[in-house]
Design a protein around this nucleic acid. Structure first.
Length: 565
RNA sequence: GCGCCUGUAGCUCAGGUGGAUAGAGCAUCGGCCUUCUAAGCCGGUGGCCGCUGGUUCGAGUCCAGCCAGGCGCGCCA
């Protein structure tokens, strides 16, 4: 939606050399300069005129009609003061009409999008670093769904490998291991393998059996993996992450398609057996420029396959779905690995997924490592968040039942966590600070929810159904109303920008701006006690439009809108 | 050592495709609850945008070099 479309035509009439695409709109730094600004850089280049000169000419020569009160040049900008009521009405009308779809540009109609994310090793309860991947991946899948893509979320279950083998050994000794004991068992298994070569060898042995299809080994692996996976999914569900398809790594051990990849590599003389009898790819033959990361091992000397070998098959499997968009969210530590994988598959004529990398959440004393047990578990983090939120809710909503309070506290906590993670760019390391992450004041998820609760409160108190569309007269009396509505109108552009950049961070920034803008409106503009019925109505509809926009944007972030808080 | 990512206010972060006086929150200082929720609002203090050069009418944004942090670099996944 571009509410300022009616301003384009008069410009084109005044300057025949221009096309509609040359005219763009921005908000002036201060509203007393104008309600909307048209930058003259691009039109100036097109007409070979200095933007300052063109702006001055445009202010003189363009005949805008009665929707424009005044036009003034300010340097390279043409600032317009508008008949605000006219444009405000267009904006509110569009938002209410589009409802839950407002903001979507519907670019995914009839298209498929596949995204793989999270795919944690089944060895322990997820820590907040892994949860970052889940939240980023989940939000991107929501973004594509919102754009009308048919979205399929895949989860790769790493049910093979030495690590799991060691865990199976420990589980055997433990008997009746529960999910809560897994992390501890996993840490112990790794520590023991480092000190006890025999134990480590047993792990490899078990792994080899598993790969050969030994039924007993498969049963043991299956039991441990399933215990972990179900436990992990339950925790991930708490933050709203869900998956459509689970692909098990063990399915890709002896995939016939790998022969054809090997064949392609042989043709390029890029694969060889090294002096230790491993099957290795020489990526230099495929165009890899550096010595570092030149070799990629496919199989061990004993003939068992490496993770990457199976991943080749899995990646081809996803390619076979022929999705229009094929994404994978990966930790930055997988960057080189994925480039190597891509190089091999491309050499064999395959298309590879588009990676989305995220950096780590660091603790004060360094990186989180499941293997070392140096972690903040998502589940503990959420419990603490809920505990803090519950304290606040108990003060503020003491007229509600404990059950109602519990639901609110949970939503507030999840909003705090998801927002804190999603608002920062995914290629940035974040240092984890419990207190900062769980603050409910300022630029936070709960702040946004709070503004929604206030809107809901106004609508509840009004107590009657709102008209579906603004009436003829839509008075705008303050800058606050105008600023809010133009901010709302920007949502579709924010969505398309986020989609293009494959990140929901701009949505988080936007939702904060809308909330701030609404709260200023809330303080400046009484709604129910505005006086004139038409003003009450226009402001009610403004509230409704703001709520609809916030709701749609918060859906993308996986944050729920509370009725009150 | 080589490659990729990051460096913006005391702290945590925004700042597509170069454009108006570099923006928020926290912290700090000062105002605002007989009026729709103070998890709030309004205002003040606080910036060699890591450093040095270059391109440009114009650089936080583009290029080069350097400095600092993160990640990675052959039988982990």
């Amino acid at each position: 939606m571009n509410p300022f479309k009616p301003l384009i035509e008069p410009m084109l009439t005044a300057f025949p050399g221009l096309e509609a695409g040359d005219i763009s709109f921005t908000t002036p730094p201060k509203l007393d300069l104008g309600d909307v600004a048209i930058p003259m850089f691009i039109p100036g280049r097109k007409l070979s005129k200095a933007p300052q000169v063109l702006a001055a000419e445009a202010a003189q020569q363009t005949i805008f009609g009665k929707q424009v009160r005044s036009a003034a040049a300010a340097g390279p900008y043409l600032n317009l003061k508008l008949d605000r009521a006219f444009f405000a009405k267009t904006i509110v009308e569009a938002i209410l009409q589009e409802g839950d779809a407002f903001g979507s540009n519907h670019t995914g109609l009839g298209k498929r999008a596949l995204i793989e994310h999270t795919s944690i090793n089944p060895n322990a309860s997820p820590h907040v670093g892994r949860a970052r991947c889940a939240m980023i991946g989940d939000s991107i899948s929501r973004l594509f769904r919102f754009e009308d893509y048919h979205v399929e979320v895949h989860y790769y279950v790493n049910d093979m490998g030495r690590q799991i083998g060691l865990l199976v050994l420990i589980a055997d000794e433990l008997e009746g291991m529960t999910f809560d004991q897994v992390l501890d068992a996993y840490v112990r298994a790794n520590a023991r393998a480092e000190q006890d070569p025999e134990f480590a060898a047993q792990g490899y042995e078990l792994l080899a059996k598993m790969e050969e299809g030994d039924p007993d080994a498969q049963k043991k692996f299956g039991a441990v993996v399933d215990l972990c996976l179900q436990g992990q999914l339950a925790v991930l569900a708490r933050i709203g992450a869900h998956y459509d398809v689970f692909d098990h790594e063990s399915k890709y051990v002896k995939d016939p398609r790998l022969d054809h990849v090997l064949e392609a590599l042989r043709e390029k003389e890029a694969v060889f057996v090294d002096e230790e009898q491993r099957l290795v790819v020489d990526l230099a033959k495929l165009g890899h420029a550096q010595e570092e990361g030149r070799y990629f091992v496919l199989m061990r000397a004993n003939g068992s396959s490496m993770y990457g070998y199976r991943d080749l098959a899995y990646t081809m499997d996803k390619e076979a779905i022929h999705a229009d968009i094929n994404l994978i969210a990966l930790g930055e530590d997988h960057k080189l690995y994925f480039q190597q994988l891509a190089m091999i598959l491309e050499a064999a004529g395959h298309k590879v997924p588009e990676p989305i990398y995220y950096s780590y959440i660091l603790l004060k004393d360094g990186k989180m490592s499941t293997r070392q047990g140096n972690v903040v578990l998502l589940t503990d983090f959420l419990d603490e968040a809920i505990r803090r939120a519950a304290e606040r809710v108990a003060e503020q909503c003491n007229d509600l039942t404990p059950e109602e309070q519990r639901v609110i506290a949970e939503r507030v906590a999840i909003a705090a966590v998801r927002f804190a993670v999603l608002r920062v760019g995914s290629n940035k390391n974040v240092s984890f600070d419990m207190d900062a992450a769980l603050s409910f004041e300022g630029d936070t998820g709960p702040y946004i929810q709070y503004s929604c609760a206030r809107i809901n409160s106004i609508l509840r108190k009004y107590g009657q159904p709102l008209p579906m569309a603004p009436r003829q007269n839509f008075p705008i009396e303050t800058d606050a109303e105008w600023a809010l509505l133009t901010k709302l109108a920007a949502f579709p552009d924010v969505v398309s920008g986020a989609l293009r950049q494959r990140t929901c961070a701009p949505i988080a920034v936007y939702v904060l701006e809308v909330s701030r803008s609404f709260t200023s409106f809330y303080h400046d503009c009484p709604v129910l006690t505005a006086g004139r019925p038409e003003l009450v109505e226009s402001r009610l509809l403004t509230c409704q439009a703001a709520l609809q926009t916030l709701k749609n944007a918060l859906y993308l972030l996986g944050i729920e809108v509370p009725e009150r808080m």
